[in-house]
Design a binder for these strands. Structure first.
Length: 293
DNA sequence: CCGCGGGCCTGAGAGC
DNA sequence: TGCTCTCAGGCCCGCG
């Protein structure tokens, strides 16, 4: 579900109630997430203060006073919801009284700020891990990640270098988190549409023979930054599961140019093409075969 | 090393 | 109503 803009939206929703607050109570209703929660998960969290809530690619990173970092990922269907002053959430028979909405609440935090933070994830592809801060760089999930697309290290030259000699498609190369970290299926399709590049184009063709960026690389890098910034400003895209932490919907799905718009008219002025859906590496790609070359 | 296909889960929606 | 099938915003693993 969530790509960089959705995760950043969640981070901004959680930060006000988690930063500077202590875990007063932690409930792990289910421990079988993508990776099983450690047996002492609750013990290691309760009593700790969150000194900062950051994000790396699609991971949320809560720095703890214990020196550990709570590394969280939303998988495909994960979401966080913040409730203020919800005492009933912690009644003794909470599990049996949960409404359908709460059926997939896997982990619940009661913070000293007074907020209850619920992690809900029907498909359970999400994960939570506790990692010592000093070992964060060695963490398998984080170690191989490419640069942040909204950070200083990301530009056309960097992208061209990363794609140099790659025979795979632009679509696959952009989805590969080792090249750029944070894009997913939606924003790759949208960035390619904005930059008028075909998802089927060989990744290596945004660089010249020496690995220097060409005009395509410049357009692509600009489009990536623009679409991510626009999506963050809109609170992310709500198709099925994504919500802001107050439960409201993101708005960026209304601004999709191609994603999930098969058969519709290409929005490029004067193009007149029709959005097509193809499958690349087992995932849907939406694009306009007329203006994306 | 690289690129690709399968698998992990549940739920929504389409078609019969 | 219900069954079956496909598909879904991600990532890990193993294969060639």
């Amino acid at each position: 579900m969530p790509e960089l803009p959705e995760v950043e939206t969640v981070r901004r929703g959680l930060a006000p109630v988690m930063e500077g607050a202590r875990f007063d109570k932690v409930l792990a209703h289910r421990g079988d997430l993508r990776w099983p929660l450690p047996k002492d998960f609750v013990k290691r969290l309760e009593g700790q203060t969150v000194t900062g809530l950051g994000r790396r690619a699609k991971y949320l990173l809560a720095d703890l006073s214990s020196g550990e970092v709570l590394v969280m990922h939303l998988g495909m269907s994960g979401s966080f919801r913040v409730a203020l002053n919800s005492v009933e959430t912690f009644s003794g028979n909470y599990y049996h009284d949960r409404s359908k909405d709460e059926a997939h609440d896997l982990v619940v935090f009661r913070m000293s700020s007074g907020a209850t933070v619920r992690f809900n994830d029907p498909r359970r592809f999400g994960s939570m891990k506790l990692v010592p801060r000093t070992e964060l760089d060695d963490e398998p999930q984080l170690r191989g990640l490419g640069p942040e697309p909204l950070g200083n290290a990301f530009d056309a030259a960097m992208l061209a270098k990363a794609f140099e000699g790659k025979s795979t498609s632009l679509k696959a190369a952009l989805l590969d988190q080792r090249n750029v970290a944070g894009l997913g299926n939606i924003y790759v399709c949208e960035a390619l549409s904005r930059s008028r590049l075909s998802p089927k184009r060989k990744a290596s063709t945004i660089a010249d023979r020496k690995g220097a960026p060409n005009e395509r690389a410049e357009k692509l890098a600009d489009a990536i930054k623009a679409v991510l910034n626009d999506a963050i400003a809109a609170g992310g895209s709500s198709l099925r599961d994504h919500r802001r932490t107050d439960g409201s919907l993101g708005d960026f799905q209304h601004n999709f140019r191609v994603y999930d718009r098969e058969g519709q008219r290409c929005p490029t002025p004067g193009c007149g093409g029709t959005i097509k859906r193809i499958v690349q590496n087992g995932r849907s790609t939406f694009f306009c075969p007329v203006c994306q070359k």
